[in-house]
């Protein structure tokens, strides 16, 4: 069943269009930076971008920071929102259930496919950004290819690679909350668009509340609260505090929403 869902994922042209678009923005940013040589003013623009001009090795991290606030969650919401609602809308859901695929199995397979998509998207963005970054900005002038971290002390290339890998893992994990929201809505509605939009509405609300001092009491529970904590991986030493909280928060969201998704989907009348 999982194999079936993965085949559907990779054979779907949309998957690759989304991943392509996901890469387009960081690449465009890189080209513009390289051509104009205009780094954003300190404190503005996405993380790492001002540092990229002197060393392309940090561009994967900058690319993650570029796609993290909107593009990545949008694409995850689209794919996860489509998971069940898309089948319902196309009418194929009834044939899968009558096949019988087993509702829990189907849900697990859909979930795995979404996870694979998230991982794939993050890996492709990072790898593309690495090649684009090093090609356009070089690997920096430091001895032995060391990379200047956020804290100003150098990271060895080995450390830099490790932290980029950790950042990829963290960003991918951060997307699971979005995926869980979209998957849940996907079992509630028969419209994949509504599911994706619903998940995005949750994110927009969360991002908005994060900017509001008055919502301080709510903020530790907002799904997007710790997203940018992946920047902490590039500090020296790594600041684990928010990363750990981010993982815990996402885990709770995922657990609760998946439980709700499962409860809803296994008792749902398939009338589409």
């Amino acid at each position: 069943m999982i194999g079936v869902e993965l085949r559907k994922l990779v054979r779907r042209p949309r998957t690759w269009v989304v991943i392509g678009l996901l890469n387009a923005l960081p690449t465009l940013v890189a080209v513009l930076l390289a051509v104009t040589d205009l780094a954003p003013r300190p404190g503005t623009g996405p993380a790492f971008l001002s540092a990229v001009l002197s060393n392309g090795v940090l561009f994967p991290a900058a690319a993650l920071a570029i796609v993290l606030p909107l593009f990545l969650p949008v694409s995850v919401a689209i794919v996860a929102g489509d998971a069940v609602a898309g089948e319902a809308q196309a009418g194929t859901l009834r044939y899968l259930i009558a096949r019988p695929a087993g509702r829990t199995r189907l849900l697990v397979a859909k979930l795995v496919a979404v996870l694979v998509f998230v991982a794939l998207a993050v890996v492709v963005v990072t790898v593309t950004a690495y090649f684009v970054g090093t090609a356009l900005f070089g690997t920096g002038s430091l001895d032995g290819g060391a990379v200047g971290a956020v804290s100003g002390v150098p990271l060895s290339p080995r450390q830099a690679v490790w932290r980029t890998v950790l950042a990829m893992a963290y960003v991918a994990f951060s997307m699971l909350g979005v995926a869980a929201v979209a998957l849940f809505l996907s079992t509630v509605t028969d419209s994949p668009l509504a599911a994706a939009m619903g998940a995005l509405a949750v994110l927009v609300a969360s991002s908005l509340l994060l900017t509001l001092e008055a919502a301080g009491a709510l903020q530790p529970y907002l799904p997007t609260r710790y997203w940018l904590a992946f920047v902490d991986l590039f500090r020296q030493p790594i600041l684990w505090r928010d990363l750990v909280r981010g993982i815990g928060l996402q885990a709770v969201y995922v657990a609760v929403l998946l439980a709700a998704t499962w409860a809803n989907f296994t008792t749902k009348d398939i009338t589409s």
Binding site: G43, A47, A51, A65, G148, S151, G152, L228, V231, R235
Partner: peptide, 28 residues
């Protein structure tokens, strides 16, 4: 270190003086 979402600045004190690091300005 003052930690910001998109960077940080650090003050390092030693017996002789002070380093001020600012990531976004790339200045030490």
């Amino acid at each position: 270190d003052t930690v910001r979402a998109t960077g940080e600045s650090g003050l390092y004190r030693d017996a002789d003086g002070l380093w001020s690091w600012d990531f976004e300005r790339r200045s030490a």
